[in-house]
Design a protein around this nucleic acid. Structure first.
Length: 386
DNA sequence: AAGCAACCCAACCGCCGTTTC
DNA sequence: TGAAACGGCGGTTGGGTTGCT
């Protein structure tokens, strides 16, 4: 059963001949395509309007970029897909000259396989269960989240006795029904314990200038109910010497990679962040949140927490400041882990310097910061009125 | 060289939301 | 207000190409 516009007339199907291409190209160049259903008749083609539209969009359009995808394009696809999932048209909008069909084909024939080869689920960008099991088999008692749930954060445990995972992947793939954050709830810059809404761990002030802020009162600043992709996703690698962080979104309008550049891009928003300093935070379904602050030189880092809160958690400042120290905040039980962070994209592509066109427009286009009730956090607010 | 399998990608299918009448 | 037309999208298909045996 064909499309209704095709069922009315006898139309040709299959590959387009050069003659047909020329007819369509000539017609649209001269007349445009205000009404696709009229195009085949006016252009003298035995095709349905839908087929003409597809041919124009995917092949004849003059602004199309042909040829293989660049590494940068590849990274952009990966980054955007992580957030949007299989919304190829949206992804393609961030790749000038590329069509949704092209992106989709490239994903299915190339990127998807790369991810699978890396043991990652191409849908969620999480580790595949088989890979998780493999890594769990390295030993150590687990603090793992529900292992049957591929969406949960995956934690692996090294044999070094400190129960520190070799790396951690967290990907909040299930968005809450609605993240409605009234403007009054938009918190000031500071570091927040997501598991305890309202609990301010760190304040932004002149003296504690390395504090980063994540304002996620009840979950994720994410309102795409159909998407299963990860909003925030990072690897943490305790064995890495440098401090790397990843905030895979929020890299502002600047071109940023998915690792350090993302983290460094975030502070560009201004208030609440210092230039060149990034924060990485990611959460899992148990509302656990990891966070770290990254120094621009990649040597410092760690998290500064309020002394009061540290005491509440039975931690001293030295526990979290200094060495790279992402903090896991889960139900108020903070645990300092000496881990560094590496973005999954870098893990896949082995590059931490490539850039992406991923930008704030995307965030808005997917409704990421807007609640259904109209009380969501706007991009401008997310940047803290920069 | 022939046969086969895997891969690529252009095109189709069917659904959905929006617009028009 | 509802039906039809239309445009757009994501999933799927199938023919052509390439690589391997």
């Amino acid at each position: 059963m064909g499309h209704h516009c095709c069922s009315k007339q006898k139309v040709k199907r299959g590959l387009w001949s050069p003659e047909e291409d020329e007819k369509l190209l000539r017609y649209i160049t001269a007349n445009g395509h205000s009404c696709w259903s009229a195009v085949p008749k006016n252009a003298g083609l035995q095709r349905c309007g839908k087929s003409c539209r597809l041919r124009w969009i995917n092949y004849l359009r003059p602004d199309l970029k042909r040829g293989t995808f660049t590494e940068q394009e590849e990274r952009t696809i990966l980054d955007v897909h992580r957030i949007l999932g299989n919304r190829w048209a949206q992804i393609a909008k961030h790749l000038p000259g590329r069509t949704d069909n092209e992106v989709k084909n490239f994903w299915n024939s190339c990127i998807k396989k790369k991810l699978i080869a890396q043991g990652l689920d191409p849908k969620t960008h999480n580790l595949l269960p088989a890979s998780k099991n493999l890594l769990h088999a390295h030993g150590g008692s687990g603090t793992a989240n529900n292992p049957s749930n591929n969406h949960a954060a995956s934690q692996f445990h090294s044999s070094n006795g400190n129960d520190t995972p070799p790396f951690t992947i967290s990907s909040p793939t299930k968005a809450p029904a609605t993240v409605a954050v009234p403007p009054s709830m938009v918190p000031p810059p500071g570091l927040y314990d997501v598991a305890n809404p309202g609990m301010v761990i760190g304040q932004h002030d002149e003296h504690a200038h390395h504090h980063a802020a994540v304002a996620m009162q009840q979950g994720y600043p994410y309102n795409d109910q159909t998407n299963n992709g990860a909003l925030l996703m990072s690897f943490t690698d305790q064995n890495s010497a440098g401090v790397h962080a990843s905030m895979d979104f929020l890299n502002g309008s600047s071109n940023s990679s998915s690792s350090m550049e993302h983290a460094a891009g975030m502070p560009n928003a201004g208030n609440g962040f210092n230039q060149g300093m990034g924060m990485s935070a990611f959460m899992d379904e148990t509302a656990a949140m990891w966070a770290t602050v990254v120094e621009p030189d990649g040597m410092g880092g760690g998290i500064e927490m309020s002394h009061q809160h540290l005491q509440q958690q039975g931690l001293g400042q030295e526990d979290v400041v200094g060495p790279p120290a992402p903090i896991m905040m889960n139900g108020g039980a903070a645990a300092a882990k000496g881990v560094d962070m590496m973005d999954v994209s870098s893990a896949v592509y082995g590059s931490a310097v490539a850039t992406t066109a991923f930008d704030l427009e995307l965030m808005e286009s997917c409704g990421m910061f807007y609640s259904g009730a109209g009380h969501g956090i706007g991009i401008d607010q997310l940047q803290w009125d920069c």
